[in-house]
Amino acid sequence: MGLEDKFPEILTSRLTDLVAWGRKNSLWPMPLGLSCCAIEMMATVGPKFDLSRFGAEVFRFSPRQADVMIVAGTLTWKMASVARRIYDQMPDPKWVIAMGVCASSGGLYRNYSVVPGVDRIMPVDVYTVGCPPRPDTLIRAVMELQSKIEEMGLDGRSPREPIVLQN
């Protein structure tokens, strides 16, 4: 590290680490608020829980400006193709948090109208428990996602193994 000796005001880093550091601290969520879980998602960005402490408070209602989709609520088959289209419109690299048991597995709605888990139509990075999850759980999901992003390469894709939050 001769460079740092000659110019003490310069920090050196690997490009991959620098990009990952930038990505993980400036997540822009796309709030897919589908039902009751969305209320907790709103509380999470409010002043009390303040998701901005983790760099993820800039909710974008245009998928083209977002990089993490928070699926907060019950996904129905009627909504499924719409949700998938919104996901497709998000630029890479992109991630998905399945918030609550409905988004993770269909939850208590095991019937004709509800998709049994949003991973039927899109890859999910973090599954969260709770009906609804408390805002702390969502914050934890964001933090788990951040640690996952840290390990990703420049393409932002690997590793794709989903994280399942336990109680």
Binding site: W77, R110, N111, Y112, P116, D119, I121, P123
Partner: peptide, 25 residues
């Protein structure tokens, strides 16, 4: 005669990073 727990209509797709077209649902 429709099953109470519903029918899984989705194509088999899980974290493959593949592309699913909406019409395939």
């Amino acid at each position: 005669d429709f099953p109470l727990e519903g029918v899984d209509n989705s194509v088999s797709y899980r974290n493959e990073g593949g592309v699913l077209m909406t019409q395939e649902l």
